[in-house]
Amino acid sequence: MASRALWKGQLRLSLVSIPVEIHSARNSGSRVSFRQIHRDSGKPVRYQKTVQGIGPVESDDIMKGYETDSGDYILLEPDEIDAIKLDTRKTLELVQFVETSEIAPIWFDRPYYVVPADDLAEDAYRVVRDALRQSKKAGLGQLTMRGKEYLCAIRPCGDGLLMETLHYETDIRDADPLFSSIADDATDQELLEVATQLIDRKTAPFDASAFEDHYAGALRDLIDRKMKSKKTPRAKNSGDERSSEGENVVDLMDALKKSLKQSGGKSGKSGAGTRRRKAS
């Protein structure tokens, strides 16, 4: 399956702007995933957005609310949030450079691949990649993606660039309260030497292919055995999940009827046409 860009914009270094795309570096499809199934009916469990005392509600009627210290909610319309204009929505500017080793592992969040958006961008892209590689530095900047502004580190990765989102300082808990109870006594020298020898003996270049997810493998083996057994309980797929398009038509019809009722039945044709265009 072709990778889909999560962000498109400009990677900027001073006055140089390079059109780039950002793709997730994580292969989520490699994980074993399950659906929740109702035991008695064998049908998938679905989740509805509901309000206590009202029941299911439509997505158009849902606002974002910020809970205050008093327990009240400050309500925000989606348009008000979208109106917040940040340069980082379309531009990732490298504003500082640091030694790669300076960024402790605790700050790293998720990895992404940064690729040139077209052939014309490749020359400038290679210059930035090679400059970072030669200087052994990582570039720091910020970008807005999926409704959040991220702190990012850019560094060379093979023939391309790797972007890793970083936690902000306020995201990381202070470790002192957890570590303060550990006695700071001197380590037994003989024990230290033995432990160091064990570490030296097991030291080797990092190779991720040398490790495998044993739990995921055991799950796949279990599923294979269950598939081959005639005694395994099974739930038939009734095709309900594939009929979402038909359900959307039903939802649209319900919305149209509600709109007609609210308008008192006047100008029904024009009102329905307007609602249909919004729904699509």
Rank of each mutant, 00 (worst) to 15 (best):
K8R: 14
Q10C: 00
V16H: 08
V16S: 13
E21F: 01
I22H: 08
I22Q: 07
R35I: 05
I37T: 00
I37F: 03
R39M: 02
G42P: 09
R46C: 03
K49I: 15
P56F: 06
I62F: 07
M63D: 13
K64C: 02
G65Q: 04
G65T: 01
Y73D: 01
Y73T: 01
L75Y: 08
L75E: 06
D79F: 10
K90S: 14
K90Y: 14
E102P: 04
I106S: 10
Y113R: 09
Y113L: 14
A117M: 09
L120W: 00
A121F: 08
A124V: 06
V127G: 00
D130A: 02
S135D: 06
S135I: 01
K136R: 13
G141C: 05
M163A: 07
E164A: 00
L166K: 04
D174A: 03
D174G: 01
A175W: 15
A175E: 15
F179K: 02
S180N: 14
I182P: 13
I182E: 04
A183W: 01
D185T: 12
T187I: 13
T187D: 11
V194P: 08
A195M: 15
L198S: 03
L198K: 02
I199Y: 14
I199H: 11
D200E: 12
D200I: 06
R201V: 12
D207G: 04
A208Q: 08
S209H: 07
A210V: 05
E212A: 03
E212L: 04
D224N: 10
R225F: 11
K226P: 11
M227G: 00
S229R: 05
T232M: 07
P233W: 10
R234A: 10
A235P: 07
A235F: 08
K236V: 15
N237F: 07
R242E: 15
S244W: 13
S244E: 11
V249M: 11
K257T: 05
K258G: 02
K258N: 10
G264N: 10
G265P: 13
K266G: 06
K266F: 14
S270N: 13
S270C: 03
R275S: 12
